[in-house]
Nucleic acid binder design. Structure first.
Lengths: 338, 338
DNA sequence: CTGAAAGCGCTTACAG
DNA sequence: CTGAAAGCGCTTACAG
């Protein structure tokens, strides 16, 4: 913090008015004479004066700040969402404080405490694996809070989520329409909502097409390429391997592509691979990845929009956004039918 | 901001002491009796009291906050650096305010003004294409500021940068040692320091190996895959196309891989491709990308370390970090010698 | 070890 | 339209 910055008193002295008037002029209050106001603003500008947002916050009770907690900003999904949040916040004169929780419940609690101390006007949470202790704490907060892709089914707060079931159904239907019959689902670690929902969409699509849902074509990975490789290896060792695999997310799909390559299989001719998210890297892969696009930036913007509505007391509700099927090179009809 | 949160006065009343004593107890001042301090802290904890960081900041003149400006947090390089910054800041009880400049000079100015108003204790800038107007402003600020991969040669402030020349020399040497003689350099838009330096490292390596430096093997892209594709297309249309190309960064290398694929060329057998950065996606590509690793998180941590030193008046200087050659699949000996 | 008092730099009724 | 005054919630010399 600048040791001895100017204050409105200094400007007041230079302009020969009271500091109240300076305060008003700087806030563009209609209560002050236009000419004096202009003069005051000119003096302030020439002096390179920056009003103290901290003093202002203490006086007004608002900080014009949102806190955002992510597992790690190095996750491209989080980065895209935060980009949307920052855009929306900034266009309203709000700043965002960013904190990484590292999927560590203790850190998550500390982060939220820190946000409370800093008197943020609202909190956005995108830490997908939040602990339940932490969740309880969130519900008790006086600060409005919005979750993005909330992994807990209870609708205890506001959230914006993708419609996982519909999107996964569409993804699976895409594979079915290409002619696949043995379609595998490579999930994430269990227990969270989006995992459950994506698996459910997969099952529903199979059921709708009167295809059997074989339990050993459903496996859990861990959302890393390595974890996916293991599962795919296992499937490919079978007498009747799947001809297509729908992955929980793009990162798992990267592992599926890698495993196929190691087995000397051609994607999509020998194995179709489908992702979920449409991270920027999906179009850089070889083959490029067919996937479900989550409107990440827009989700960030919408979550921020909810926060603003909550702040001015408007009615609000959680929102569902739709995924979009993006067909690229990694899916095609199976080589031999059935 | 919470409408009517508790203040230290409320805690003081409950503990039957003055608010001065509460303030001291909460700051763990040795000036207060151990038992009373414990009691006060217990009361505060039970009441879920969060001290106001904004009031504290006004009183102390420090906000324990750093401002970070990036072009866009959706850029994986920026995201990794910010991750390092956040870790380092957080471990000292500091928060980070994140702002995207969008490579827009006006926005950049506004962001810095906003940081000044918020009285951040220091600023980190990773907006690589900062305008010069903006730069002048930065030099006049009273707040300590550190640049990461500063694109302007003037050493007007503190910075942490990768040693581009040495790293590019090593990259080019790697290709030479594999037996390549016609090695191309695919640069970025011109005029910035890291572009100049990387090209210089390339030239130096050729010179050291007594290889000619052909001007038409040096082209500028724009750090997008599409831009790279264009340049590569042009080269591949030649009678004597290069057998290897060293790209300004990994994103350009993605374009090089794509172009090679479209021409039916095998990488690395027909064309070796080398990147720079080692973004996470480098190991997801097919083939996986040989590249120079920039220690992005560490650069973030180091930049933050400089800020802390500057804050407590320690001597400091800019720092150069080293790149590391990461050999993967995209480079190999040329098919036919020479 | 403790408390009363002043001050940090703003905003905003209130009175004129 | 303008200013004096109180208040936002802390910290920290100062005096005891």
């Amino acid at each position: 913090m600048a040791k001895s910055g100017l204050s409105i008193k200094d400007i007041a002295r230079a302009a020969n008015v009271s500091h109240s008037t300076v305060s008003r002029a700087l806030r563009n209050s209609p209560l002050v004479n236009v000419q004096t106001a202009d003069q005051i603003r000119k003096i302030a500008r020439d002096a390179n004066f920056r009003i103290s947002a901290v003093a202002r916050s203490l006086a007004t009770g608002r900080t014009n700040t949102f806190g955002v907690v992510v597992t790690t900003i190095a996750d491209p999904f989080a980065a895209e969402v935060v980009q949307g949040v920052e855009e929306a916040a900034n266009s309203h004169g709000y700043s965002v404080i960013l904190a990484n929780s590292g999927a560590n419940p203790e850190r998550e609690m500390k982060v939220v405490h820190s946000f409370e101390e800093r008197r943020v006007d609202g909190i956005l949470v995108m830490s997908s694996r939040v602990g339940s202790l932490y969740l309880r704490h969130l519900t008790e907060m006086k600060v409005p809070i919005v979750l993005i892709n909330n992994q807990h089914p209870e609708e205890f707060v506001y959230s914006v989520m993708i419609d996982n079931i519909a999107a996964s159904e569409e993804a699976t239907r895409h594979l079915i329409q290409l002619g696949h019959r043995r379609i595998a689902y490579l999930g994430d670690r269990g227990g969270f909502q989006s995992e459950n929902e994506r698996c459910q969409g997969y099952r529903q699509a199979l059921a709708a097409a009167n295809l059997p849902c074989s339990p050993d074509l459903i496996r859990q990975g861990d959302s890393t390429p390595e974890g996916a490789v293991q599962v795919i290896d296992e499937w490919l060792a079978r007498a009747q391997p799947p001809t297509a695999v729908f992955c929980y997310n793009d990162i798992s799909a990267v592992g599926a592509l890698l495993a196929a390559r190691r087995h000397g299989l051609n994607v999509p001719a020998d194995l179709s691979v489908m992702g979920f998210d449409d991270l920027p890297l999906a179009s850089y892969l070889n083959p490029t990845l067919t996937t479900i696009r989550q409107p990440m930036r827009d989700m960030g913007r919408q979550a921020t929009g909810i926060l603003f509505h909550l702040l001015d007391g408007s009615a609000e509700s959680s929102r569902r956004v739709s995924g979009e099927l993006i067909v690229r090179e990694s899916t095609a009809a199976p080589r031999k039918s059935g």
